[in-house]
Design a binder for these strands. Structure first.
Lengths: 251, 251
DNA sequence: ACGGTAAGGGTCACATCGACCAGAACCACG
DNA sequence: CGTGGTTCTGGTCGATGTGACCCTTACCGT
């Protein structure tokens, strides 16, 4: 912060060049659900360093924009989405040497979008693709810079966010079934939730979801048609679904 | 970050000076409990801008250190504490114009310490003091830069952290009574907790606190002497004390 | 000795949660 | 057209945890 530079030698008149200069970038971890799996949007780097490797999208912050605006710009450049939807800052990374070229501090954002499948590739030359988060965490593919760590932190964040906020609805469409919403929790937490109990918990918290009165067509496997809901007001304090079962060692 | 600078004109050879330079600082919101009240450590600025105003301590990040190291350095410069104790990053701030001199992005850390009262002033020339957090939030005193916002975010963070981690023990001494620990929760959340139920919840989660077998001397008001505990292993997932009473409108 | 005060421990009603079961509503076969 | 399979919805029940309240214990001051 710009607060008192204590231990300052001869401050007096401010000489910005007297302080170490950094490049500041904004990186966005874009998460989405595809095929019942949590996926992350990656781009293939066109230039050195780490040329040809996968990385999360990002870019330099401009002096005239806020960090949030920079993140939103990156998101829309990459996916074409304008909606501010879910875009939350979750960390800053500035280890020395994390960028071999210069001193770079990056501020990382987490974006939750629904189905960017079609949008991917709408960007310019660079190659972009959705990758299963599990592949990244298992290090089946290497990411540029310290992006593995950033994705790891993002995933940990979304796991917590899922419990304390209503972010789950950002993964699904404007209308959705209970099964779709439940799949979000199951995929991100890696658990199995009882359909009946899940449903009860969700509808009990009134205002969370709003029944539309319509029904979804069952899949080819058959089954009773599910009711369609749309997201209610944002979840503020504490969602109704909890991560850890009480089946643990709590006395 | 530092990922593909898309929309790059003629990248090819990297020219760092082609990208906007920022100063990067680290600010630390140092919280402590004093007189049953949550307090924040502030320093009075010696130079322009905002000369004479209160601010949270901070300073420029050096290219050779990580952000965490810079925060730890600032903390120890200010309080003399070496312990990494509780020092967590919680946000980055980079609005244009937040520092009138130049483009500055700051990374904010939250530190929880116990009783820095004596230490304050051990630093160099600058004036430092503990202020009640409520005074800052009520804007009874103005803070430099966007430090009001930063403190606000820090307080919101500590409120959440208190519920999901074992950070409460960082506020109290190496040994403490249940009443002291309970006072932390009550001050930070602004609630009243039942002493008996609180005690049960804490000791039920085994490993959270460890009885020392010793007893504290009662205050001058009398009363049964309280047992002394020390902190157990760090709380990992979900503390035993919850913020909102179920007495709300949950159907 | 006695009242005041605070900590520790018990009890009980009640809400919640997870496991399980049953019915409803659809599909795909034969 | 009927039958079995599948999925969603709703019900029940026992276990568990929580909050409110009371009582006992153990110290202080006078």
């Amino acid at each position: 912060m710009t607060s008192t530079p204590r231990s300052a030698q001869p401050p007096a008149g401010y000489d910005p060049s007297a302080f170490p200069a950094f490049a500041v970038t904004v990186d966005v971890v874009i998460l989405t659900m595809s095929e019942r799996t949590l996926q992350v949007l990656l781009v293939r780097r066109g230039e050195a360093p780490f040329q040809g490797m996968w990385a999360i999208p990002g870019g330099f912050k401009r002096p005239t924009e806020t960090l949030d605006e920079a993140a939103l710009r990156e998101l829309s450049e990459e996916t074409g989405m304008e909606i501010a939807a879910q875009l939350t800052q979750f960390g800053a990374y500035g280890d020395p040497g994390r960028d071999p070229r210069m001193n770079v501090v990056t501020v990382a954002y987490l974006a939750v979008v629904r189905d960017v499948g079609a949008v991917v590739g709408g960007t310019d030359a660079s190659e972009a693709a959705l990758m299963p988060v599990s592949a990244v965490l298992n290090e089946d593919l290497d990411l540029a810079f310290d992006h593995l760590r950033i994705v790891r932190d993002a995933v940990e964040r979304i796991r917590v966010e899922l419990e304390v906020s209503g972010i789950a609805t950002a993964f699904v469409g404007p209308t959705f079934t209970m099964a779709e919403l439940r799949a979000v929790y199951e995929a991100i937490w890696g658990v199995q939730l009882d359909a009946a109990n899940f449903r009860r918990s969700i509808v009990a918290e009134d205002g969370w979801v709003i029944p539309t009165g319509q029904r979804a067509r069952p899949g080819s496997a058959g089954g009773r048609p599910a009711e369609l809901y749309r997201a209610g007001r944002a979840w503020d304090h504490g969602g109704p679904i909890h991560r850890f079962q009480r089946a643990d060692g709590r006395k």
